[in-house]
């Protein structure tokens, strides 16, 4: 029986006077890939930032593994097992690749475990190993995205939040990144993915929610939504 890992109930977020998220509810089961798709400005990133604690909801509740995490500070949410790959990657440009990865493990104390994890990530991204002493700001866009994902994995999250991982990448790299996301999911990490590239997102997700100006307008199995006429017209360029 699948267990609900993340439960968001009636989430509202305000930016000053702007009501960005207007009472959305959704959930993510353990082991799933769930995607939020929608146009630019629909509130996808805002939703993720509220889940990871960077934004405080004005109303509503967020539960993780059964516990109420609404309004907790971001570092406490990371310690509970939610880690985010932010939009635009947000690596630490003046630090080395290795230092970036070590920061990803900031909430971890077991050095042997951190080392094993680092080797695992180097195994998945050999390019990062080659460049471990290089300053991260000098990496290419694709390498930076791999670093951002690797850094996120260093905290060994139960739930990984991915914000626009395809942004600014060449199509071949986008496919590579998405197959890596599937591998990470196969290895047991639950994933909540926000994407403008709805085609790619629906191709790897189990379920999807469509977000329009702060409201969820459609939801269902990813395969069904990929054939929904409205979704096709609005997001899949058909």
């Amino acid at each position: 029986m699948a267990e609900t890992l993340l439960q968001v109930e009636d989430l509202n977020v305000h930016y000053g006077a702007i009501h960005a998220i207007k009472g959305i509810s959704f959930h993510v089961q353990r082991g799933e890939i769930v995607t939020l798709i929608g146009a630019n400005g629909a509130g996808k990133s805002t939703t993720l930032r509220a889940v990871s604690g960077l934004l405080r909801p004005s109303h509503g509740k967020i539960f993780f593994a059964g516990a109420d995490i609404t309004g907790l500070a971001p570092h406490k949410i990371v310690a509970r097992g939610i880690s985010q790959v932010p939009e635009g990657r947000r690596i630490f440009p003046e630090m080395t690749v290795l230092e970036n990865l070590e920061l990803g493990a900031y909430t971890r104390r077991d050095r042997a475990e951190i080392k094993r994890n680092l080797e695992r990530i180097y195994g998945r991204f050999p390019r990062l190993k080659e460049r471990s002493r290089q300053v991260a700001g000098t990496l290419s866009g694709g390498e930076q995205q791999m670093l951002a994902i690797g850094r996120c994995l260093m905290s060994e999250p139960e739930l990984m939040l991915l914000d626009e991982p395809s942004m600014g990448l060449a199509p071949i790299l986008v496919r590579e990144i998405f197959s890596i996301i599937e591998e990470i999911n196969d290895a047991g990490t639950t994933i909540l993915l926000v994407e403008q590239n709805a085609n790619m997102a629906l191709s790897i997700a189990n379920r999807a929610y469509v977000l329009e100006t702060g409201t969820i307008t459609l939801s269902g199995a990813a395969k069904e939504l990929a054939h929904n006429e409205r979704v096709k017209k609005a997001y899949l360029g058909a």
Binding site: L54, A73, Q84, Y106, T107
Partner: peptide
């Protein structure tokens, strides 16, 4: 913000 997301207080 990225530092916050690393779990840094």
């Amino acid at each position: 913000d990225a530092a916050r997301l690393m779990g840094i207080d």
